[in-house]
């Protein structure tokens, strides 16, 4: 009845399927290796697209530039915000980096809704790619786009005389925090996309989410200035921990309030949970 029983063609995929039947630990290792490889393949799609058409990235450079140049310059002069030992522009630069990452990530699922309206998502879901890899690949894609923002914000900050920390380990830390932050918010975007399912509604939701996430955080002012209820909200906001980590890693003489360990943990756990949720929701996009 079946192909196997009837002795019909056994080809190389049968060997691939056999590998699945090995012992538990080998299987686990293979599953993880497969997850990583496939995540990178999905990310490769994004990188190739960016290489074909980088205009989007350049357009996205405008917003952080305006924030740093206009908002930053004015508020540095007003000296209205108590930023401790840091000048306001030093305080602001990591916040603006986190903001650009947030903006890139929160709208990242729009392209996924577009791919769903075509048949692209269908074809990816019909392939043997683990769902978690499809989702993580999209998260890492947003991370890659965000790394371009890092370069732009560093460049503008340098020109504005921000006291940047160029220690290689600190730079590596910035890269990791940006990748984690982008993952958190692009997965949030993906989750919302799976629920609202149209581009128009996702645009609206993106606008709706950006403002509270940005203003209920320590991005442009210290949390200590906020009323108590808003402080409580800000402490639940992953962006707060991203900015906190960036402030200690990016700025010479900057320091973390919550500790880098907690910052990494909050972002890491958020990203992991969101991945699990999104991996379950993603196949619903094509129903």
């Amino acid at each position: 009845m079946t192909l196997q029983e009837s002795g019909a063609p056994q080809r190389d995929w049968d060997k691939r399927n056999e590998s699945v039947t090995r012992s538990g630990s080998v299987r686990g290792m293979r599953a993880i290796a497969n997850l990583i490889t496939k995540t990178l393949v999905i990310t490769e799609v994004e990188v190739r697209k960016l290489l074909h058409d980088p205009t989007d990235l350049l357009l996205r450079a405008v917003q952080p530039a305006l924030w740093l140049l206009i908002f930053g310059q004015v508020f540095t002069r007003i000296r209205a915000i108590p930023t401790g030992s840091l000048s306001y522009i030093d305080f602001l630069a990591p916040g603006i980096l986190a903001q650009s990452v947030l903006f890139v990530a929160i709208f990242s699922a729009i392209s996924i809704v577009w791919e769903r309206d075509l048949g692209i998502v269908h074809k990816f879901l019909a392939s043997p790619t683990p769902r978690a890899a499809l989702v993580l690949g999209k998260a890492l894609s947003a991370g890659v786009r965000s790394l371009v923002q890092v370069v732009i914000v560093y460049l503008i900050s340098f020109l504005l005389g921000v006291q940047l920390n160029f220690n290689p380990l600190a730079l590596l830390g910035v890269v990791l925090i940006v990748l984690l932050g982008a993952a958190c918010f692009s997965l949030l975007s993906l989750m919302v996309a799976c629920l609202v399912r149209t581009r128009e509604r996702l645009m609206g939701m993106g606008q709706l989410m950006t403002m509270p996430l940005f203003f209920a955080s320590n991005a442009i002012y210290p949390i200590a200035m906020m009323p108590n209820w808003l402080q409580a909200v800000s402490h639940l906001n992953p962006l707060t921990y991203q900015v906190d980590a960036l402030r200690s890693l990016m700025i010479a003489g900057g320091s973390s309030i919550y500790g880098l360990g907690l910052d990494f943990m909050v972002l890491g756990i958020t990203a992991t949970l969101m991945t699990l949720v999104c991996a379950r929701l993603y196949p619903r996009l094509v129903l």
Partner: peptide, 12 residues
Amino acid sequence: YVPQALSADGTL
């Protein structure tokens, strides 16, 4: 699987 809708990526 070839879906009914366009499924090749136009930007690649």
